[in-house]
Design a binder for these strands. Structure first.
Length: 832
RNA sequence: GCCCCCAUGGCCCAAUUGGCAGAGGCAGGGGACUUAAAAUCCUUGUGGUGUGGGUUCGAGUCCCACUGGGGGCACCA
C-alpha cells in the first residue's frame, strides 16, 4: 500500500494537506470573503501587518509575522467586527536599483516580478487579506500623493533644505538619516559611514519632538514598553538652560555672543574653559588669525576620522585653542575657548561650558591639556582633580558665591533665576532628536516635486502636475551610483519651465527616502483608489487608527516614529481627527535556527517554500503561533511542524467521525463534554484578547483530546455534544489553520466559509460547576481534599476542614493559631 | 558605563495575577493493533520554579541583592 509521508489515515479517509490547499484556495478566491462591508452594519476594525519589501519571495520571518496578524484579523472577524486587513508593498528602494544595474534592466521589472511572486505566496499562505486594496508605493498613483504630502509639508515649512555635514555611505553613494546609521555604519550594507557637507532636504520632525513624546501616554499599555522606551530614548528630552557667554574681542575679531546648553547651571562657577564643536562654522568664525592654521589642520584631522572611530569613547580627547576667551556671565571669569570634536555640532548649540570637576568628558579634556579643575559641588567624594573621576551625584554647592550651601536641585533652580534676571539665559528643554534627512541620491524612489528656478528659487510642482513621474528611459549602468542622483542625467526630464515665471528651470533630482513612502501607507489603505487626495478623510475617520499593528521590533524607531510624525502633521492639516496612527502594536519575535538568526553566511537558512511543501501551510502557521508567545523568538530547531501536522490530522478526523446531523440540538448532549467545550471557547476568547495565541492552541489541543475520548470511550460519535465540540474546534482552528478548518466545516455539513461562521456562543450555565475540590493545608502542606459545593460558606468549610481525619492527624493534638479560609477552594490551618 | 526585558521537567512553554507547580507540545519510556513496520490509539513526569535573603498563614508570582542570557543607548553637555 502506498502511503503519503504526511498523510494520516483512519476509517478510509486520509488527511492530505495538499488536497485541502488545492480545494479551498479557489473557493475563497471566488467568495471574496475578506473584503470589509464598510456599511456600518458592524463595528469596524483595522488590522495591519507591516507591509513587505519585495526582495525575492517570502521568508520565514514573513510567515511568522503574517501568521500573527492573521490570527487577530480572523479572530475579530469571528467576533462579528467588520475587519479591514489590507496588503500592499513597500516597493521603492535600493535593492531593486542594484539588481537593475547588474542585469541592465529597469528597477520596475525586478520589483514587480517579486511582488507577483510574493502575492502568490501570500495567497497560498491563506492570509485573510482584502486584495482589492492592494497598493505599491512605486506606482505613480501612489507616489503622486507622497509628493502631494511633501508639498503640504513644504508649504508649512516642515520640508526645507540646508547645508550640513551629513552621514554618507560610500558604498551606496547616498546620504543616510541618523536613524539609518548603526554604530557608525550604514544599516543597510554595513559600510562605515563618513561625513560630507551637502545641501539636503529635511523634514522638521524636531518641531514635533514634544508631541511625539507626550502622545506616547496614549500608547502605554498597548505598545510594548521597550518600543516606547526606545523612542523616548531616541527623542532624548533633557531639561536645562541656555546661558549666553560673551566671547571677548581679540585683535581683528569682534566681540561675539555664544549660547550654550547645559543641564547643570548649578555648576556655572565650576566652568574653567569653553568648548565649541570643531566642525561647526562657529569654530572658524571665532578663531584668531594666529590660531587659524592650527584649527584648520585639526579640522582636517577630524574629518578624516570615520564615524566609528569618532564615536569611540576609548579615544583620547583632542582639540585646539582658538585664541579667544569667553566671559562667565555669573562671575565674570575669563575662560579659554577651545575647539574639540567631543562637542557635537548638531546637539544643543554646538558649544558648551566645560565643568571638569562634574563632567567626566570635560575632566578628561582638562587633564589632557592641563586646564584647571574646580569642584563646586561637595558630594563627599574625593577631589576630582586628584582622582580623575568627575563627581555627578548629589551634594552641597561650594565656591559658588551666593549659590553656596544650596543642594544640586536648588542650585539649578537658583542659577536659572539668576541668568534669567540678568537677561543672559533662560530655562529650556533640549532634544536629542535631529531633523529627518529625507533626500537620497538614487533613482528608484519618489521624485522630490520641486523645481529650481534661477529667478524664483525653489518652486513646488503645482498639485495638478503631480505626479512627477520617474523617467522610464534610464536603465542598467545609467543608474549606477555616482554621488549625484542618476536622474540628473535625464536631461529632457530635468529641464522644465518654471511653473511660476515660465523661464528655464531644473527639476530637483533627488528622490525621497523610502521611509517617506511607508509613513502614510496605512492611510492610503482606507481608500486606495481615491483620486481627490492621498486618502478619503471620511474613510480615514471611519477606519483609523489601526486597531492592531503587527511587525518587527527593528522598526521600533525608524518607521514607527516617522509614521507617528506624519500622522500628527496630517492631523494638523485638518485631514484626520486622530493624532496617533496605531492604537496597539505587537512586535512578533524573529525566527531563528539553532539559536541564531538565519543568514546566508551562517548557512542556516530555512526556506519557507520547502517547509510549506513538506508540512503544509496550516502546519507551518500553527507551528509559528504555538511555538511561544507572539513576541518571543521562534527557534525552528526547537519546534515540530510535523507535530503540528499530526495535531491537525487529529482534529480533522474528528469532523469525519461526527455522526449526528448538522443542526442537532446540543442541549441533549453529554454535559461533561459540553462543559469542556464552553469553558474552552470562553477561555480562548480571553486569551486571544490578551494576545496569548500559543496558549489558545494548547487549549484547543485539550478540547480535541477530550472530544476524541468522548467519541472513543464516552458518549460516542452520535452525541450532539460531540458535534458541538468539533464545530467549536473548527471555528477556533480557523484562526490558525484555515484550510483544515474549512474542510472540517465542510465535513460537518456547512457551506463555506468557516471564516464567517461566527464565534461560538458560550452558555454561562455550562461554565459553573456545582462542586469543587477544596484543598486543606496544615502549615501550607496539603493534607486533604474535599468535594464541596461552590457556594459553601466559610464557616461550613472551616468546620469540614477541621473535622477531616488526615488534618486531625497532622495537627497531632496541637491547638489552632490561625485558620485561613478562602471558600470554596482552600483552607490553611496554622497550629499553635 | 547607563537603561530595559527574561530565567519553571531534557527542550519549547502554561499556571485564573499571592492559594494544590504542570495545562499543551517535542523528545524519551511502556503498552494495544500488525507476520513485521508505518500510521493510529492508550499510558508514563519529585523539577519545587537561576542563587541568596526578606514580607506573608501561604511566594513561580511581591521586595532587596547577586548570577546568567537577550536587547537598546552610548563623547547628547
Amino acid at each position: 500500500m502506498s502511503t503519503q509521508p504526511t498523510g494520516t489515515e483512519t476509517g478510509g479517509s486520509t488527511y492530505r494537506f495538499q488536497d485541502l490547499e488545492a480545494k479551498w484556495g479557489p473557493v475563497w478566491e471566488e467568495l471574496g470573503v475578506f473584503t470589509p462591508k464598510d456599511d456600518g452594519s458592524a463595528e469596524r476594525r483595522y488590522v495591519l501587518d507591516m507591509f513587505p519589501y519585495p526582495s525575492g519571495d517570502l521568508h520565514m520571518g514573513h510567515a511568522e509575522a503574517f501568521a500573527m496578524g492573521d490570527v487577530v484579523a480572523r479572530y475579530w472577524r469571528q467576533r462579528g467586527y467588520d475587519v479591514m486587513h489590507p496588503i500592499g508593498w513597500d516597493s521603492f528602494g535600493l535593492p531593486a536599483e542594484n539588481a537593475a544595474i547588474k542585469r541592465n534592466a529597469h528597477p520596475a521589472e525586478w520589483t514587480y516580478a517579486n511582488i507577483d511572486t510574493q502575492a502568490a505566496s501570500f495567497k497560498r499562505y491563506a492570509i485573510s487579506a482584502d486584495w482589492s486594496r492592494r497598493l505599491h508605493t512605486s506606482d505613480p498613483e501612489y507616489y503622486r500623493w507622497t509628493q502631494w504630502l511633501f508639498t503640504r509639508f513644504y508649504e508649512k515649512g516642515l520640508a526645507y533644505r540646508k547645508d550640513h555635514p551629513v552621514n554618507w555611505c560610500p558604498k551606496d553613494q547616498t546620504v543616510l538619516a541618523n536613524e539609518q546609521v548603526v554604530n557608525g555604519a550604514c544599516e543597510r550594507c554595513g559600510t562605515p559611514v563618513t561625513k560630507k557637507s551637502l545641501n539636503q532636504w529635511y523634514f522638521k520632525i524636531t518641531e514635533y519632538a514634544d508631541r511625539l513624546l507626550q502622545d506616547m501616554e496614549q500608547l502605554k499599555g498597548h505598545w510594548p514598553e521597550r518600543v516606547l522606551a526606545m523612542q523616548r530614548n531616541w527623542i532624548g528630552r533633557s531639561e536645562g538652560a541656555h546661558v549666553d557667554f560673551v566671547i571677548e574681542a581679540a585683535g581683528e575679531r569682534p566681540e561675539h555672543k555664544v549660547t550654550v546648553f547645559t543641564t547643570r547651571p548649578d555648576t556655572l562657577h565650576g566652568a574653567t574653559f569653553f568648548v565649541v564643536a570643531a566642525d561647526a562654522d562657529l569654530a572658524s568664525d571665532l578663531v584668531t588669525e594666529a590660531h587659524r592654521a592650527e584649527l584648520e589642520a585639526y579640522q582636517e584631522q577630524v574629518k578624516a576620522l570615520s564615524e566609528i572611530e569618532r564615536q569611540s569613547t576609548e579615544r583620547e580627547k583632542t582639540g585646539v585653542f582658538t585664541g579667544r576667551y569667553a566671559v562667565n556671565p555669573l562671575n565674570g571669569e575669563k575662560l579659554p575657548v577651545w575647539a574639540a570634536d567631543y562637542v557635537l555640532a548638531d546637539y544643543g548649540t554646538g558649544a558648551i561650558m566645560a565643568v571638569p570637576a562634574h563632567d567626566q568628558r570635560d575632566l578628561d579634556f582638562a587633564t589632557k591639556f592641563g586646564l584647571p579643575v574646580r569642584a563646586v559641588l561637595d558630594t563627599g567624594e574625593e577631589d576630582p582633580a586628584v582622582t580623575g573621576l568627575a563627581t555627578t551625584g548629589e551634594g552641597i554647592l561650594v565656591n559658588s558665591g551666593e549659590l553656596d550651601g544650596l543642594s544640586k536641585a536648588e542650585g539649578i533652580a537658583r542659577a536659572i533665576e539668576m541668568v534669567e534676571a540678568a537677561g543672559t539665559g533662560e530655562r529650556t528643554v533640549n532634544f536629542r532628536l535631529r531633523d529627518w534627512l529625507l533626500s537620497r541620491q538614487r533613482f528608484w524612489g519618489t521624485p522630490i516635486p520641486i523645481i529650481h528656478c534661477a529667478e524664483c528659487g525653489e518652486v513646488p510642482v503645482p498639485d495638478e502636475h503631480l505626479p512627477v513621474r520617474l523617467p522610464d528611459n534610464l536603465r542598467g549602468e545609467q543608474l549606477a551610483p555616482k554621488g549625484t542622483s542618476p536622474l540628473a542625467a535625464a536631461e529632457e526630464w530635468v529641464n522644465v519651465p518654471c511653473p511660476r515665471c515660465g523661464g528655464p528651470a531644473r527639476r530637483d533630482t533627488d528622490t525621497m527616502d523610502t521611509f517617506v513612502d511607508s509613513s502614510w501607507y496605512f492611510l492610503r489603505f482606507v481608500s486606495p483608489q481615491y483620486t481627490e487626495g492621498p486618502f478619503d478623510p471620511e474613510a480615514a475617520a471611519r477606519w483609523m487608527p489601526v486597531g492592531q499593528y503587527v511587525g518587527g521590533v527593528e522598526h521600533a524607531i525608524l518607521h514607527l516614529l516617522y509614521s507617528r510624525f506624519f500622522t500628527k502633521v496630517v492631523h494638523d492639516l485638518g485631514l484626520v481627527p486622530f493624532t496617533e496612527p496605531f492604537s496597539a502594536l505587537l512586535n512578533q519575535g524573529q525566527v531563528l535556527n539553532g539559536g541564531k538568526a538565519m543568514s546566508k553566511s551562517l548557512g542556516n537558512g530555512v526556506d519557507l517554500g520547502e517547509q510549506l511543501d513538506k508540512f503544509g501551510v496550516d502546519a507551518v502557521r500553527l507551528t509559528m503561533v504555538f511555538a511561544s508567545p507572539p513576541e518571543d523568538d521562534v527557534d525552528w530547531a526547537d519546534v515540530s511542524p510535523s507535530g503540528s501536522g499530526k495535531f491537525l490530522a487529529r482534529a480533522w478526523r474528528l469532523a469525519g467521525d461526527v455522526s449526528s446531523g448538522a443542526g442537532a440540538d446540543p442541549a441533549s448532549g453529554d454535559r461533561a463534554l459540553r462543559a469542556v467545550t464552553h469553558r474552552t471557547v470562553a477561555d480562548c476568547a480571553e486569551l486571544l484578547d490578551s494576545g496569548k495565541f500559543n496558549v489558545v492552541v494548547a487549549r484547543l489541543m485539550e478540547l480535541v483530546n477530550a472530544t476524541r475520548k468522548a467519541i472513543d470511550s464516552g458518549p460516542g460519535a452520535a452525541d450532539p455534544a460531540v458535534r458541538e465540540a468539533v464545530e467549536a474546534t473548527a471555528v477556533i482552528l480557523s484562526l490558525f489553520a484555515p484550510y483544515t478548518a474549512e474542510d472540517m466545516w465542510s465535513l460537518l455539513g456547512h457551506e463555506p466559509a468557516v471564516a464567517n461562521a461566527g464565534w461560538p456562543a458560550v452558555d454561562p450555565a455550562l461554565l459553573v460547576q456545582d462542586t469543587v475540590v477544596a484543598v486543606v493545608q496544615v502549615q501550607g502542606k496539603v493534607r486533604d481534599r474535599l468535594d464541596v459545593p461552590v457556594d459553601i460558606t466559610e464557616e461550613a468549610l472551616r468546620e469540614l476542614a477541621l473535622a477531616s481525619e488526615p488534618v486531625q492527624r497532622a495537627l497531632d493534638g496541637r491547638g489552632l493559631r490561625t485558620v485561613i479560609v478562602r471558600a470554596p477552594k482552600l483552607v490553611n490551618i496554622v497550629p499553635a
